[in-house]
Design a protein around this nucleic acid. Structure first.
Lengths: 202, 202, 202, 202
DNA sequence: CATGAATGAGCCTTCATTCAT
DNA sequence: TATGAATGAAGGCTCATTCAT
């Protein structure tokens, strides 16, 4: 007999979610069949509809899980406003590490929320605007160059994060810490060997 | 009667390609129906198979068109190897401008090749490795900081380009020149207001 | 604890019957879902099968309830055989009133037994043949015109009753007494303003 | 080769309609399977959707066909306004004969439109209101008794027609002419052997 | 007396693709 | 160069019903 009433149902639901995440991440929405999910979960088709109203519903739930967790993560890791100038690199580094670690820890819903969801753009926009707030605050405190348009910078950071995630992080080629470090190094200090040339001058 | 033999056929084929690009770009592969393409082209379904062996074939043709054109573009705009240090920014700027202009000029196949194609990763890898070659050459000439791993930097640049393309360029929010300028400014000189702090120090 | 053994079960069963009648009457057999009945009754699906062997069984029980009650009613209100000529209208009036009152009193099972049951024809046939007996007796006593075929007349009366029930009685537009009166008036005296013309003459 | 372009399609469509009418009439909407219709028509399932957008669509088309034809019929057979008193029976007889003949001639769509359609009530209402117009006109010309409420009389006639159709006409037990004659006889002259008793007197 | 959990069976519908003309 | 007509293959979903507790 079951110790906790309703436990078995919760477990079936959970199994379906996990398997669905795996299927969606590796095959995409259309190539993922309800029949496959259900078979892998050791259930039959009607059981699926016991827990989710349709195929889209389970997909959306996964997308929302990613979205919610990402949002919480970014909101939590906001720069402390009283940060000293020499703390900026460390702060940025930690933020990026946190993000990369989260993305690496949940690769399936990352793929779903970041690359597969029809509304992945919204998710990224949300992330971008949270970043913009942080960046602008730093900029007004004089930590970042005033001539940089932070909306664009934020988009760049998001672009960097998503590309590195897809091609280096998720395949396991590089780890979260390594990537965070390189990104900070690139973004803060730029590529040039010496800082004496400015593009505006040319 | 047609003046040039096969002209009408060529035109039908062209129409199908153009409409397909529009449909694929705006709805994705699965949501695009052969029946819709064909109807918009003023043809019937069997006519479609006169020109393309199946739905994937027309999609692939569009992907390849993008891929080929992008490849040509990047190969052409390779950095001249004998470049002077103060030319680096201008060179990078021009390269990025060229790329953004190309992407903005053919928005439909850009969306297809960059975001929809299952092999869009390959396309980006190709772009990345071309970039790596260029960047490494510059680095060895002492123009770029030696501690930067150019494979990662190249990925970052590609990530930046694709994100800015999707969220600012294709929607027409910013133009190619403006974006190129901002990217160069960010990448070359970094974000910090003054360069006296190093992340390694922390 | 329940005072009377099995009381709770009887109540559940009753509740299911009442709700099922409502659902069947308003949606029809196929559009009525066991799940709905059960939910409205505050029970779960398996509980349903504690009381009824299947969906058809509960439907049939409702149909039979209607059938039985109708049969009793009609048998009871049989014409007294020794009726005087001037009592005929009153008798018919009372019979019709009784029927209309019964139908109006239980609208749900009326709808089910009269319009939804696949065997509603049998029910009506039964009613018809009871009517035929009565009518023929009257006819032989010289109260009704001898050239009328009472089988057909009985069908007509049943048709009138069912139509008036559906469109005027159940919606509450007219009451049982009003309808009975009009029907008697029409059936006994006919429509013609004066009786001097006969169809056979034409 | 086909003589008339598009003929084959029209024929397939027609076949589907005819077979569907037969299935619906004999089994009802839910028990009728698209697969059955299509098999009987010598086609496959997708072919069905070439001609009808779904199962309901073909059902509705049959209902509408019945509705339209019935409407036309009744509108056409309207009483001529200048009718002489002694023509009334003949007129009514002809109208009823026409209706019964129509119903008998197309038994399948009759069953569908009159007893199966969810909106069969509307259809009958429409018929009723057309009847009311006719009856009232006659009444005002003094042909029918002024104390009869023609709305109710019309309902009665419709009820008679539908019941006789179902139990005597469609099964082939009686023919249109016979039924029409009996109905007229009953409706016009009433059931009483002599007209000297009035219900109001009792 | 009742429930949590699950299933068997089946139907509608869609879409890319083809055949014959 | 094209069309009218049709199909193969498959997938999502629903519902009545049952098992084990």
């Amino acid at each position: 007999m079951t110790l906790v009433k309703g436990l078995k149902g919760k477990e079936s639901r959970m199994r379906l979610l996990t398997i669905a995440a795996d299927e969606f991440a590796n095959r995409g929405f259309h190539e993922t069949k309800v029949s496959t999910i259900v078979t892998r979960a050791g259930l039959t088709q009607p059981a699926f509809y016991l827990y989710f109203s349709n195929k889209e519903a389970i997909f959306d739930e996964l997308v929302n899980e990613f979205r919610t967790r990402l949002r919480k993560l970014v909101q939590t890791s906001r720069f402390a406003p009283t940060v000293e100038a020499h703390d900026v690199p460390k702060q940025l580094l930690m933020t990026l590490e946190t993000i990369f670690r989260f993305l690496a820890a949940t690769p399936n819903i990352t793929r779903i929320g970041l690359f597969l969801a029809p509304n992945s753009d919204q998710i990224k926009e949300e992330l971008t605007s949270l970043l913009i707030d942080n960046l602008r605050a730093e900029q007004q405190m004089g930590h970042f160059r005033s001539e940089l348009a932070m909306e664009t910078v934020a988009e760049c950071i998001v672009g960097i994060v998503e590309r590195l995630t897809l091609s280096l992080l998720l395949p396991g080629i590089k780890g979260p810490e390594s990537l965070a470090l390189q990104v900070v190094n690139l973004l803060l200090y730029g590529m040039l060997a010496n800082g004496d040339t400015s593009i505006q001058d040319s």
